[in-house]
């Protein structure tokens, strides 16, 4: 076990898997010579050469589509999207091809590929570069969609993604790249999809989140404990599809109230799905309606003060917790 950054954990996962299996390769814009906008791929071109670390033109549909073809023929391509905002250009390749070909071929091919890259609000990147996509991809059967919140999960889940048989949308948070955490050294350390975890135990209220908002939720939980004496149980979903809500249900059975936190827009979002599921499954256990904490329903503004207003922070989570606790 060693302390590593989220960024290094991702690079290590890819390099260990490329060492392990020559079918693994990576492509993306400026990942080779330039060594990556976020320096995730630093040193990889030198080690693996241009056939396995492919600098592509700025052509997301081309990258995603060629990766589907490679995967159907047995390779395990990783596509780095400079940011997930650009992957919208490849929506047809991802949603109509990667996610569907197994089904409409009656199961004749595997599509082992990973599309990974950062998403979410940064610092003053404005409307086109600050979006999150778990809700978007989470809607489509045929994909796996994961949102690791810690360096250990980033590494373990990326290895699971690379070793799997299905297209995986691997959503990183640029804001977490510098975050440090303990990461197991075992070369075969993997984290399975579809197993959420209790990130913090508590008895009074359940906070359900994932990705960067999980970290914000944990900070809010500490404040609630120190300032209000409220012990929040925080659930880290880890993957959005497959979605494992069993620990959330178990927690709600104990606390009788839930707050779901997501970074972006409220309408039809992941939080709505989770809140609805909790209501369906745990109706008779709820002492208050499930609350959602989400970003504001606007494109991301540029001005820093407006940007901060547009995204959720601890105070909103604390307020929502107090509301479901009837403490407001």
């Amino acid at each position: 076990m060693a302390e590593k950054t989220y960024r290094d954990a991702i690079r290590e996962a890819m390099m260990e898997e490329m060492d392990r299996d020559t079918n693994v390769l990576i492509m993306g814009e400026d990942i080779g010579v330039y060594e990556g906008t976020f320096r995730i791929t630093a040193g990889m071109l030198k080690k693996y050469g241009p056939r396995r670390v492919i600098d592509t033109p700025i052509a997301e549909a081309g990258m995603a589509g060629t990766a589907v073809g490679m995967a159907m023929l047995g390779l395990r391509p990783i596509v780095e999207m400079m940011t997930m905002n650009f992957a919208i250009v490849a929506a047809d390749q991802i949603l109509n091809h990667a996610a569907k070909v197994r089904y409409f071929s009656g199961g004749q091919v595997d599509v082992p590929m990973v599309i990974r890259g950062p998403q979410g609000a940064g610092v003053q990147l404005s409307a086109q570069h600050s979006q999150t996509f778990e809700t978007f991809y989470g809607h489509f059967p045929g994909l796996a969609v994961v949102t690791p919140a810690t360096p250990a999960d980033a590494k373990g889940m990326l290895k699971t993604a690379i070793r799997g048989k299905d297209p995986v949308i691997f959503l990183e948070s640029a804001a977490l790249y510098g975050m440090k955490g303990e990461v197991p050294d075992d070369l075969d350390f993997t984290v399975p999809f579809g197993q959420s975890r209790v990130a913090r135990e508590g008895s009074d209220v359940t906070i359900v989140s994932y990705g960067r908002m999980l970290q914000v939720s944990l900070i809010a939980a500490e404040k609630l404990s120190n300032d209000e004496g409220i012990e929040a149980e925080v659930i880290d979903l880890r993957s959005i599809r497959p979605l494992d809500l069993q620990p959330s249900y178990a927690s709600v059975a104990k606390t009788h109230r839930a707050v779901v936190v997501q970074e972006q827009w409220k309408p039809f979002g992941a939080a709505a799905e989770i809140a609805a599921s909790i209501t369906e499954e745990m109706f008779d256990d709820l002492d208050a309606p499930v609350a959602r904490v989400t970003g504001e329903d606007v494109p991301m503004p540029y001005a820093r003060n407006l940007e901060l207003l547009a995204t959720p922070h601890e105070p909103q989570i604390i307020a929502a917790v107090k509301k479901v606790m009837y403490h407001d």
Partner: peptide, 29 residues
């Protein structure tokens, strides 16, 4: 709240005999 209803049912407490302390008089656990 659903929980309050369930508890009232289990305990045999008639809901109409209770004062709700939640928003808009909602009876809570």
């Amino acid at each position: 709240s659903p929980l309050a209803r369930r508890m009232a049912r289990d305990l045999g407490v008639p809901l109409e005999s209770l004062q709700g302390s939640g928003p808009q008089g909602r009876i809570i656990a």
